[in-house]
Design a protein around this nucleic acid. Structure first.
Lengths: 349, 349
DNA sequence: CAAGGTATTGACAACGTTATCATTGCCAGC
DNA sequence: GCTGGCAATGATAACGTTGTCAATACCTTG
């Protein structure tokens, strides 16, 4: 037993060479068996498989990847803003699933809204020679990715289109969705509608704000800057912003929350002021439990799973060699009425 | 321009060889510069760095990993039950963070409660020669990991200890926590307390049930099998189970939900029966928004971030060569009162 | 029986890097 | 001027696999 101990200290995993020796075959033949390539007699295949089993041989993908044409690693890099966010989370699961089905592996990283970090992670993943990247961009200039394109790394952008750079993209229609949500409030008799938006450097915030403007214009409602708060980061900041807006001299009768964390802050604020049954609320993003709140939250639901699946599909079609022009897929946003958005306003019919 | 196009079709990324040629240095010297090894004159270093910059050279980690002693890849594999679960999610973020700080990369995968999938993913990660594994085990026999141990892959188990195998582990005290929660209900005057538990093949379910039994015994309450439902999978099943239990001939006056998804089902059920203000509820796991429900949910909160951080710390200490015996860390569980657990029962003082 | 084909197998180089060890140049000390 | 020592540099062989192409064995066909 001590003997084995000593042995183990020096032990290294068996290589294809060990298998070949034991099976009385050449390296290449073993390689063929391992990779399911044709041209191996049944008898030989059996011997090789026996050797593999008794030695408990495991192919070393590091070596394999190095040698393979183009150095393909069958891995993809996933850059998300915040894995804790249900949206990112759903996307991640969909991508992971699709990758697994194709024998790919996903290396992931959270980059927040930090453009520097985005580049850092892209560099790290590039050094590891991922075959593809799925990117929820933080920065406003993705031209640096020209280098990755040269290296034949495929890319798909999600949630936000790239800037200064063309690539496949999967987004939702933020402007239209947001406009629909605001129009919904208008149709329930609201004309003073507050907008709580996220960091304005993020494109989606701008688009949702544009939708808000559009809906107001369509309803001939004048814009009141005191009802617009953007640059909100996280639910605590949203809480404060909502309190402040509701405490103004001429507060809104309805709120539009531009993102899930902001929604949570807004709900807290309305609760605290005991206004949650009187002030209408429509939110972008759906989250587990939003339906169990009182009142249930009326939301514009994105489908993270659909976004992820579409992104994976696009990426893999590129990896399979598709060469058509860059495509942009728009995943629909669904308005789900649950009560908070149907609280009537002063102009209700 | 067309010229460049044509060029690009054949273009391959520059290698260390190209850098060496341009800098008038040997391969090894470039390698030294890239890896920050000593023994390079300032002048030479400058030339090499210039060459790297003009060629936009990026080290190929695949090749590097292959050659390095022990074939270390500076990557760790993360096996989680369900990335969509807030617990798993928090763990993931903590691990990712720690890994990034150390220059490691995380490849992740969801395995559900499927033992076969657990092994499959471990095999895949092993083939990629990860340096370490963080495992939320699905199966009940981890003895197969002896092979990975021989290969010097470090391992840390989270949430559930390994079976038939010894290894570092980070868990929470499920039994004690659960007992505390049930005792809390008892102290508020409840003696008929229903238990809704997850899949019984998962150790944590058993431990939480044991805590439930312990608390009842300590309070001299006889066990009523009709108040125990285990094997519940997902929130819909939990919803049904709760409805059924509350519709019995002698229903409980309080419920203990053994896990976050079950909690959600239970809350739905109590709402539907309009009992949410009369039946007390204590739940294992805290989730965003539980505090915003009405009444707020009294929970036994795990700290996923702490679990992940501790797991990463342990794993990296092993990778740094620590050789001490297997350790088991227990992260405390916190009881947070928010209302649902303080609804008085018939025996309230 | 020769010619040609097909199926099986293997030898060898190569992938891009790092480990090992040798070589070179330079300076201090005697 | 010679020796020893140190710092800088490089030549070469790996790492474990797959791509290329050659070699062999065995048929089939005329």
């Amino acid at each position: 037993m001590t003997d084995i101990q000593v042995h183990d200290a020096l032990w290294t995993p068996p290589t294809i060479r060990d298998v070949a020796a034991r099976a009385g075959a050449s390296l290449k033949t073993v390689s063929r068996v391992v990779n399911g390539e044709p041209g191996v007699s049944p008898d030989m295949e059996r011997r090789v498989r026996d050797a593999i089993a008794t030695l408990d041989y495991r192919p070393n993908m590091t070596a394999s990847n190095l040698r393979r044409v183009g150095g393909r690693t069958r891995s993809i890099g996933l850059l998300l803003s915040n894995v804790g966010n249900p949206l990112d989370n759903g996307v991640q699961r969909a991508i992971e699933q699709a990758a697994h089905d194709r024998g790919f592996v996903v290396i992931g990283s959270t980059i927040g809204e930090d453009a520097r970090r985005e580049r850092e992670i892209v560099d790290i993943f590039t050094a590891r020679r991922v075959d593809g990247l799925v990117i929820m961009a933080a920065g406003h200039d993705q031209s640096y990715l020209a280098e990755q394109r040269r290296m034949r790394i495929s890319m798909v952008f999600i949630d936000r289109p790239p800037a200064m750079f063309e690539s496949d993209t999967v987004v939702v229609d933020n402007e239209e969705g947001s406009a629909r949500g605001v129009a919904h409030l208008v149709s329930h008799g609201h004309r003073r509608i507050g907008f709580l938006g996220g960091v304005s450097s993020v494109v989606t915030t701008e688009q949702r704000l544009a939708g808000y403007f559009g809906a107001l214009r369509a309803a001939d409602i004048e814009i009141d800057r005191s009802l617009i708060a953007v640059g909100i980061q996280g639910s605590e900041a949203a809480h404060e912003a909502a309190i402040q807006m509701m405490s103004g001299s001429n507060p809104p009768t309805a709120l539009f929350a531009g993102q899930n964390l902001i929604t949570i802050g807004a709900v807290r604020a309305l609760r605290q002021l005991d206004l949650h049954r009187r002030i209408a609320l429509v939110c972008f993003d759906d989250v587990q439990l939003f339906d169990l709140l009182d009142p249930g939250l009326t939301v514009l639901a994105q489908d993270p799973w659909a976004i992820g699946r579409k992104a994976a599909e696009t990426l893999f079609s590129r990896l399979d060699g598709s060469n058509e022009g860059h495509r942009t897929d728009v995943i629909p946003v669904e308005l789900i009425e649950r009560g908070s958005g149907e609280i009537p306003g002063p102009f209700a019919g």
